[in-house]
Simulated assay, not measured.
Amino acid sequence: MSVADFMTTDLVTIRPETRINDAVDLMKKHDIHRLPVVDNGKLVGLVTEGIIQRALPSEATSLSVYEVNYLLNKTTVDEIMEKDVRTIKSSSVLEEAIYQMRKNNIGVLPVVDDGHLTGIITNNDIFDAFLNVAAYGNGGTSVTVHVPAQEIGFLAKVSEALASHKYNILSLFVVKQGDAKAIELHVDSEDETGVKNALKQAGLEE
């Protein structure tokens, strides 16, 4: 899976000279939480709800509501935006996007190809990708099979056990559990008992 498979390409962007109030209005209108800042097709910054919140005067300020609104109307996003923006290529594997988000404690990565902004991928896109790969919501049965250490051809054994009973695998994950491994399966049948019996008859341990 690549970033291109799950990134958002229908982008709402702003220019550096956009006023903060206008940026806030755009976020509300499109129900989004961040805006890439683009100048001549190039990504030059990123504005998020958190950045705007930190730019607002604190509750302890002596400014009136009128003065705050005046300030936000005069301030442009290039004065508060994050300029050192981490990006990723659309051809990158999804795991790289997850790694970068976790490593840098961020929830969004603008997608930049050949110097131009082509998309954006967020933690919500990552969640959607996981649900898609896991075939969640497609019905069926989820089961876990424990993997014996160093057994060659174990996946083929699991597949054959299910196929012999006319069950198809919708998704499959190999999960580490300490020093051991387990296979998380999603099978295209609501007959949970039948699926488990098929595995048990093949000598596969749940």
Score class of each variant (00 low, 15 high):
Val3Trp: 14
Asp5Lys: 01
Asp5Phe: 01
Asp5Tyr: 00
Phe6Asp: 00
Arg19Val: 02
Ile20Thr: 08
Ile20Val: 15
Met27Glu: 02
Met27Trp: 02
Lys28Leu: 13
Lys28Thr: 12
His30Lys: 12
Ile32Cys: 08
His33Gly: 00
Val37Ala: 08
Val38Lys: 07
Asn40Ala: 13
Asn40Arg: 14
Asn40Gly: 06
Lys42Ile: 15
Lys42Cys: 13
Leu43Gly: 12
Val44Leu: 07
Gly45Met: 01
Gly50Val: 09
Arg54Lys: 14
Arg54Thr: 07
Leu56Ala: 09
Ala60Glu: 14
Ala60Ile: 10
Ser62Trp: 09
Leu63Thr: 11
Ser64Cys: 05
Val65Gly: 00
Tyr66Ala: 09
Glu67Gly: 05
Glu67Tyr: 12
Val68Cys: 05
Leu71Met: 15
Leu71Arg: 13
Lys74Asn: 15
Thr76Phe: 08
Thr76Met: 10
Glu79Phe: 03
Met81Ala: 00
Asp84Val: 01
Ile88Ser: 03
Ile88Ala: 02
Glu96Pro: 00
Ile98Pro: 03
Ile98Leu: 15
Met101Tyr: 11
Arg102Ser: 07
Lys103Asn: 10
Asn105Ser: 07
Asn105Val: 04
Gly107Ile: 02
Leu109Tyr: 07
Pro110Ile: 01
Val111Thr: 03
His116Gln: 13
Leu117Ala: 06
Gly119Lys: 12
Ile120Asp: 06
Asn123Ile: 00
Asp125Glu: 15
Phe130Glu: 11
Ser142Lys: 15
Val143Pro: 00
His146Arg: 13
Val147Lys: 14
Gln150His: 04
Glu151Cys: 03
Gly153Ile: 06
Ala156Ser: 07
Lys157Asn: 06
Val158Asn: 15
Ser159Met: 07
Glu160Thr: 07
His165Val: 08
His165Ala: 14
Lys166Thr: 13
Lys166Trp: 12
Leu170Met: 14
Phe173Gln: 10
Phe173Met: 10
Val175His: 11
Lys176Pro: 05
Gly178Gln: 14
Gly178His: 14
Asp179Met: 15
Ala180Ile: 02
Ala180Leu: 09
Ala182Glu: 13
Ala182Val: 04
Leu185Ser: 03
Thr193Lys: 15
Thr193Asp: 15
Gly194Trp: 14
Lys196Gln: 01
Gln201Asp: 11
Leu204Val: 10
Glu206Trp: 09
